[in-house]
Amino acid sequence: MTTFSAAQIPDLTGRTAVVTGANSGLGRVTARELAARGARVVLAVRSLDKGRAAAATMTGETEVRRLDLADLSSVRRFARDLTEPVDLLINNAGLMVPPFGRTVDGFEMQFGTNHLGHFALTNLLLPRIRGRVVTVSSSGHRAGTIDFDDLSWERKPYRAFPAYAQSKLANLLFTAELQRRLTAAGSPVLATAAHPGMAATNLLGHREPSLLTRFAQSEDDGALPILYAAVADMPGGGYAGPGGFLQGRGAPKLVGRSRAARDETVARRLWTVSERLTAG
């Protein structure tokens, strides 16, 4: 069996990729590798300065545009201004177990950023997407439940990891329902998902360093499942992750997901609720 590496990314000349959160971590590596293979890469970032600094380290054609996924008006503005066809949309940006906060629109920060921001962005760009939508989830989705009665933690006491797990489960349910809708419409666009395992990115920056040293793989290796989901031969709705022990590290391959992430009824309901929450 051939092990996937960045060297196996095909020539992407003439194609446009949008990568959210491309100024650091997995997004930066993903953008770098796509640009190196000839794609025109749009770095969609909150900080233009950080985005430009990241782009300066890349070879190939890049453009930096501001996108704040925690502000739906910013998402709408980004989608309005990006008028060209998009071959790859990489929904990578995210938050992991921050202190409690709310988005500009009043949603719990992780659910609002990790799921609703990307849900809105994808649907706004969908008429111009002609390749794949890759959404980055996490093995943490296995601990998640979708609490339709309190999606934004307005009633129950906030707990950072359950909120994170809910948002990552939402990413997989979104991917599944998006693919179902694309298939029903006869669209050639594919929706896929990926998770990086345990990768030493800035999301883990506050964790105990010894844990990173022992278990985490590098940003470059952590980005491989994302790149695999973007360019490898895999089915719509497929989920890529590291193939090693507990999917923590190793070469990317198709991996399984929790029973909750395969619940078609919940996926459809979440889509409907997300449409309502992001309408504007």
Results as ranks from 00 to 15, higher is better:
D221P: 04
D81W: 06
V75T: 15
L172C: 01
A35R: 03
P10M: 15
S210P: 01
A70Q: 09
K253N: 08
R142N: 08
A53W: 00
G197T: 08
I9V: 13
P99R: 15
D11Y: 03
R214S: 09
A120V: 09
A79G: 10
L34K: 08
P188A: 00
L88N: 08
I129V: 14
A191N: 07
I146R: 09
T192I: 09
S74I: 06
V19Y: 00
I129N: 11
Q179I: 04
D147M: 06
L89E: 10
A55Y: 06
R259I: 06
V29G: 01
N91V: 02
F119W: 03
E154I: 05
R77E: 15
E177D: 15
R159C: 00
V75W: 01
G94F: 03
V134G: 05
A267H: 02
E61F: 00
T57D: 15
G186W: 08
F107V: 10
R249F: 03
Y158K: 07
L121M: 13
P127Y: 01
L151H: 03
I146M: 10
S152W: 13
S258M: 09
R155W: 00
L270E: 10
E63A: 01
T278D: 04
G280E: 10
Y164M: 07
L88Y: 06
L116P: 00
V19W: 01
G197W: 05
A200L: 05
P98D: 10
L126V: 06
L88G: 04
N23L: 08
T62F: 08
G250K: 07
E154G: 13
V42N: 09
S258C: 09
R249W: 02
G248N: 11
N202A: 14
L26C: 05
A200T: 01
H115C: 06
A170M: 12
L212S: 12
G131F: 02
L43V: 09
L116I: 07
R80H: 09
F78E: 12
G197S: 10
V42G: 03
E108M: 05
L270K: 13
A36N: 12
I90P: 00
R80W: 06
R142H: 13
Q179A: 04
A191K: 07
F111N: 05
W271H: 13
P98G: 04
A160G: 04
T272D: 12
